[in-house]
Structure formats: C-alpha cells, structure tokens
Design a binder for these strands. Sequence first.
DNA 1: GTCTATAGCCAGATAGAC
DNA 2: GTCTATCTGGCTATAGAC
Lengths: 204, 204
Amino acid sequence: MTKGSLREKVLRVRENAIVDVVNRLLAEKGFEQMTVDEIAADVGIAKASLYKHFASKEALAAAAIERLLERALEVARQLDERADVPALGRLRALVRWGVKLQLAGEMPVLPLHHPSVRAEFVGARPCAELLTQLSDLLGAWILRAQADGEVDRSFPLELVLYTLYARAADPVPGLLKTAGQHDDAQVVEWVVQTLFAGLGARPS
Amino acid sequence: MTKGSLREKVLRVRENAIVDVVNRLLAEKGFEQMTVDEIAADVGIAKASLYKHFASKEALAAAAIERLLERALEVARQLDERADVPALGRLRALVRWGVKLQLAGEMPVLPLHHPSVRAEFVGARPCAELLTQLSDLLGAWILRAQADGEVDRSFPLELVLYTLYARAADPVPGLLKTAGQHDDAQVVEWVVQTLFAGLGARPS
DNA sequence: GTCTATAGCCAGATAGAC
DNA sequence: GTCTATCTGGCTATAGAC
C-alpha cells in the first residue's frame, strides 16, 4: 500500500493537472476548437501520454464536466444546510456561484448536440449520477420556493430548472465583461436580477 | 439586360436555395458540425459548384446570418410603424418572433468565439451594417421603455440589448420542446415571461 | 508511463475537363 | 457553372522504442 498509494497519489495529481487544463480550454474555446495537441502542450507532456490516462478526447471533456458537477454539488449541499436561507436565496446563491465561475473563465462548456460527446456523457455513469443528484436538490428548492410564493407557481419544474442551468452557459456575462466598463460583481448582480426579476421595472 | 437579368435571376434563386439549406443546417447542428459536403448533397449540386457561389464555408454561414438579419430588421421596422404599441410591446413581439423561429428550427447559430467565423462576420460589411441598424432600432425602443417605466432604469442599454439577443440562441425553448408535453405557443409565452418578468412570482 | 514518429481519417478547398 | 477526381492540412489516435 505504501509505494502503491504514493504512485496513485502522484497519478492523481497529474490527472488533476490535466483536468485543470482541459477545463480552462473548454471554457476558452469549447470542445471542437480544443485540440488534444494543445492540451498536451499546456500540461507539458506528450500527447501519447495523455491517452494513457484518458481513453479519448471525449473522456477528457467528461472528466472536466464531472469535476464541475462535483464542485457544484458540494456548493449546493453546503447551501442546503443553511436553514436560515430561504429556498429562493439558495437558488440565487448557486446561480451567483456559476456566473462567477464563468466570468473567471472556468466554466467548461460542451456541445451536447455533438453525437460523440453526448454518447460519452451519458455513458459516463458518474456524470449522469451527479447531474441527477444536483437536479434533485435544485428541484426540491424550486418546489419549496414555489410553495413559499417566491417563484411563480404556474411554471413547471423543468422550465425553472432548465432556465437556471442555461445561465451557466449564457453569453451575456462574457459580453458585458468584454464590453469593459463594468466590474465582475456588478455583472453578476445584473445577471441574477434579470434572471429572477426580469427586465421589467421593479415595483417601487 | 434581358438575358443578363434572366441569368442573374436564376442565379439568385439557386443561391437562395443554398442559403435555405445552410440556414437549416446551422440551426440543426451549428457551424462546426455542418459540413460542406452535406450542404452540397442537400442542395443537390456538387461541392465544387458551391465554391463558385461562395468563397468559403464561413461565407456560406455569413450569407445565412445576413438573411436572418434582413428579416429581423424587416419585422422590427414593421413594429416600429405601429404607433399604438408601446415600446415594451414591440420588444416582446420581436422576441416572440425570434423564439418562434428557433422552435421552427430556422434560427441559425454561429460560434462567435471561433476566430475565422468572427473574422468573416465582421469583414462582411452587410452583416455588420444590418446588425448596427437593428441594434439602433432596438436601442431606441429600450430607451423609450425605460422612460415609460416599463424597463428597469438602472440597467445599462447594453445589458438589455445583449439579454434580448441572447434569447435567440437560448437552449431553453429547444429543451422544453424536446421534453415534449408542451406546445410551441406555451413555450414561447413562458420564455417571454421569464425574460421580462423573471422567475419570481408576479404581484397578484 | 513517457517519448518520437506516424498511421488513418476527415473535411475544406481546388484542378481541369466539359 | 457544373461536374469528377484529387489535393492538402490538421486532427485523433496508436505503434514501438526506451
């Protein structure tokens, strides 16, 4: 166990470094524009070595998404403990976390219409499982927020859930940041406000 | 002029058919997944013939976007004539038009982070010009809606403009449609409502 | 497990006859 | 302007030495 676990630890560290690079490149240029050559160059190892760790480019992307889901789930579970925060507040907090991640250039994005990506993603048990867990948690919050009268009761659960998820890949934060002029915190608040309260004027 | 204009007319019809196919494929699978071979096959001509009409794959995509912008501008100008409709109503109507187009599978989508696509798009004078005209028109509506107290006055113009544009490529309508269960009209109304009034419960 | 070198493939673009 | 046939480059993936 001594030597074996040490080797495994080194291996984990290396694979984590790989996933870091993949995550960043997925955020920067997306799956198709990201090349395996570039991943290898950025990590600082040969391309063939990458394939000793991950079976395919799709597996690399799936690993990045899996880690994202793990982190999101961790954040969500911490929020779930906070009995003092209302359901709507938890939803807002999680969206804030996601938008901040996106502005930091760390939100990987996948083209889910791409057949091979889809296949790998649903084939990767951990990813599907994590997504289910996260959705279950969020679904409970949404139902609670509707019961509390904080979210429109006429909206079906899936409409709210999809709308929340979609903000993670929304181009608006990035565009506003690129336009300059505004700092990240301001952008986050605007996006959260338009998401929950819409573009309309708030009742004064 | 007789023979020349006839030939030109035939040419226009053929190019229009090409753009139809490109538009549909861009809506279906996006720029990268769309192949020139498939375009040629769907149009029913040889690939080399395509390149007699358009210089590159990017030019094909730009042509589809240009036609989309022409149509959007036409719809916007018609709405602009309607003195009886308030500014917010015009904005809602244009968004409805866009979401319907998307649900019909006719909203082409471009990856604007893709360098060569960006270059072609900004290099294509007509596209840039049309986008500017559309944005000017929408900008005027937005300012008017803010003056009328229908849109939050604290929002900068670009936030509102980007948010409106982003709905044209939003995945939510497609996801809701795929989930089945709901008809298009219902999906359109939900998306428009969440855009302008947010997820929050409306004051009763 | 890491490397260099290369196979195999696919898609964008072109040559040249008609 | 249309076609068939081909070129070219870039990308994923692997072979094989160490």
